[in-house]
Design a protein around this nucleic acid. Structure first.
Lengths: 149, 149
DNA sequence: ATTGTGCTTGCATAATAATACAAAATCTTG
DNA sequence: CAAGATTTTGTATTATTATGCAAGCACAAT
């Protein structure tokens, strides 16, 4: 099982609403044939932007409101027309009116080297953490948005 | 300080978005003349339904989107989630739909080293007059938007 | 006043999550 | 392919959060 598959499985499991600890998640994943340690899950949770809600009857993990990534992905592929960049920022061209959707899609991924996105109508600006990271992020986006994984 | 007052103070502090642990919250409360232990705060957090969001740059506490945050909307600093920058531009992350409001707020300040702002939905781009001014403007914005003057 | 009930808190500790580090795996580039 | 860089992961540990228990307090009913 690849990391990507695991992250996907985690989203599914967490969306189920029964997970109250990373260890519970670990056991659930093991049922599905995925053995990893709590440490890895701690990292995965950060990557997925999972939230932990505490209340009187214990805590629960949950996905952030914007978590419909799964439903979004097929659309995003069709909407992205081109990805281009200069030294310090990346421009994604989309179908008219689609920049916002694509921007949200990127936002929820919470890539550590993307500090943010700004969407116009058919143009999306992606801001790298540093100029050095620009090229790397372009590759990431092409992979993510065009090849569709 | 009564428990009720303490809970209110916690909401305020957490809405500020700088709290990454209960101990940090404890120190912040102490500045305001409220001394309690971490154990008490753990219980308070459950009572307020505070969520902990983990991401690549560490975790942070936040109020539940639905209830209490709306009441604090008038305050710009409740809308601002993060301020970040690379060498040449500044990105302000806000609650969904709030970037425009925050952008106008900055515009009317007419800071001499801010050429302009571009607002998306939850992301605001602030363009400095020169790269050299970037760091300085970040400090200005943090002061203005997060600490609330 | 005394007893009882319920709420709040701190202390000590158990439970849980995050991370430094090193090794392994994977990807890049010449 | 080889060398080097980057990413992923586990181990061991540290850091953080939750909780059992008992004490203190406020208040009501006797």
């Amino acid at each position: 099982m690849t990391k990507r598959e695991r992250l996907f499985a985690i989203k599914e499991i967490v969306a189920g609403g029964e997970i109250d600890s990373q260890d519970a998640l670990r056991r659930e994943l093991r049922k599905r044939g995925c053995e990893v340690t709590q440490a890895t899950l701690s990292r995965d949770m950060a990557e997925l932007g999972v939230v932990r809600i505490t209340s009187h009857d214990g805590g629960r993990y949950a996905l952030q409101p914007a978590g419909e990534v799964k439903a979004l992905r097929p659309l995003v592929n069709a909407e992205v027309l081109a990805i281009d960049a200069n030294e310090s920022m990346i421009v994604v061209r989309t179908l008219p009116g689609c920049a916002n959707t694509v921007g949200e899609f990127i936002d929820v991924e919470k890539h550590p080297d993307v500090i943010g996105t700004v969407a116009g109508d058919n143009t999306l600006l992606v801001i790298p953490r540093s100029q050095k990271k620009t090229r790397q992020i372009v590759n990431y986006l092409k992979h993510k948005l065009i090849e569709g994984q």
